[in-house]
């Protein structure tokens, strides 16, 4: 993989840091009039998800990370791996539990997810911003009691738990924002 000098740093560039692929979020060139130049960089580690700040001496080079995003449709899980398919080439890729992390609760069959590959292996899976899931369990809620209660918890078919308004019932399909984990609306039929 190519090396990148700090002059090439910009948001979105993928570099290696402490043996882990990272995404540059922000890059600020710091150069006091009478001093040495530095690049202050905000970085997200792509495997651990940790965000940190790192300072480089300007002109320094770092190793690039062979990271690419690919859009794949979720097929099924065999219990250990989660299988995805490229809808154009029908090529399949299996991601493990670690790559899924918390996001496995938003996987819906046939939904197109963004799979981030590092050296060809999946390291993260990002579900679509909105998914539609069926409520498998929620308290019936009292009729008419809808004023400012903040809703009730509902368990969805994937095991995810979200807060829903009192009028939404078991068996209904709802739309959820996967970034915040919040109820958006009843699904459009």
């Amino acid at each position: 993989m190519a090396n990148y000098s700090t002059n090439e740093f910009k948001g979105g560039l993928k570099i290696m840091l402490d043996g882990e692929p990272c995404n540059i979020l922000e890059n600020e060139y710091v150069k006091p009039g009478k001093g040495q130049a530095f690049n202050r960089v905000k970085i997200r580690k792509l495997i651990s998800g940790k965000v940190l700040e790192k300072t480089f001496r300007s002109g320094e080079s770092v190793e690039g990370a062979d990271v690419m995003d690919t859009e794949l449709a979720y097929l099924y899980t065999d219990g250990e791996f989660y299988h995805f398919m490229n809808n154009d080439t029908f090529e399949q890729i299996a991601a493990d539990e670690k790559a899924l992390g918390d996001n496995k609760k938003w996987l819906v069959e046939n939904d197109v997810c963004i799979i981030t590959l590092w050296n060809g292996s999946p390291i993260t899976v990002t579900p679509p911003n909105f998914v539609e899931l069926e409520i498998t369990e929620t308290d019936p809620g009292l009729k008419g009691d809808t004023a400012g209660t903040g809703g009730k918890p509902a368990t969805l078919s994937t095991g995810a738990v979200v807060r829903v308004p009192l009028f939404v019932q078991t068996g209904e399909v709802i739309r959820v924002d996967t970034r915040s984990g919040e109820y958006v609306s009843r699904a459009q039929k």
Partner: peptide
């Protein structure tokens, strides 16, 4: 957080802290 901070000159350390 910078690699080998001890190799920075005293002025560079001060300037980093300052900025």
């Amino acid at each position: 957080n910078i690699d080998s901070p001890h190799t920075l000159s005293r002025d560079s350390m001060l300037q980093l802290l300052f900025s």
